[in-house]
Amino acid sequence: MARAEHLETLVPEERIQGEAMDDDDDSGEEREVQELEREIKDLAQRILDSRRSMPDRLSQALASRLLALRPPLPSIAIPETAGQSQLSEPLAGADQEMLQKLHSFSDKTSQNVSAMPALLKRMNDCIARIDKLDEYNVGIHSVFKQK
Results as ranks from 00 to 15, higher is better:
18 G>Y: 07
79 P>I: 01
26 D>E: 08
33 V>C: 02
50 S>C: 04
25 D>E: 08
83 G>P: 01
73 L>N: 03
99 L>W: 09
7 L>D: 06
113 V>C: 02
97 E>D: 07
14 E>M: 04
108 K>D: 12
112 N>F: 08
35 E>C: 07
63 A>E: 04
96 Q>H: 11
13 E>S: 11
38 R>T: 07
88 S>E: 01
37 E>H: 13
95 D>W: 10
28 G>M: 02
12 P>Q: 11
22 D>N: 10
26 D>T: 13
76 I>F: 03
86 Q>L: 09
103 H>A: 09
56 D>E: 12
21 M>C: 08
16 I>Q: 15
71 P>S: 06
18 G>W: 04
27 S>V: 04
39 E>V: 04
16 I>Y: 13
29 E>D: 12
47 I>E: 01
84 Q>A: 05
12 P>L: 13
54 M>H: 13
15 R>L: 12
89 E>M: 06
28 G>D: 13
84 Q>M: 11
23 D>G: 07
15 R>C: 08
72 P>T: 06
19 E>T: 08
81 T>E: 04
28 G>I: 00
99 L>M: 11
63 A>W: 02
106 S>C: 04
94 A>L: 03
92 A>P: 00
10 L>E: 09
30 E>M: 13
48 L>K: 05
32 E>C: 10
47 I>A: 01
90 P>T: 04
54 M>I: 04
99 L>C: 09
53 S>K: 04
107 D>S: 15
105 F>I: 06
42 D>I: 03
22 D>K: 12
15 R>G: 02
22 D>P: 00
109 T>Y: 09
33 V>M: 09
91 L>F: 05
26 D>V: 15
75 S>W: 06
71 P>I: 05
94 A>K: 02
80 E>S: 07
32 E>T: 14
57 R>E: 12
67 L>Q: 15
9 T>D: 11
97 E>V: 03
89 E>S: 08
43 L>Q: 07
15 R>F: 14
94 A>P: 00
84 Q>Y: 06
92 A>Y: 02
14 E>R: 06
80 E>N: 03
45 Q>Y: 02
47 I>Q: 01
101 K>L: 14
58 L>W: 11
103 H>S: 04
13 E>G: 09
11 V>D: 13
73 L>K: 13
99 L>S: 15
66 L>I: 11
28 G>Y: 03
15 R>M: 15
112 N>E: 14
44 A>S: 13
68 A>L: 07
32 E>G: 14
95 D>S: 14
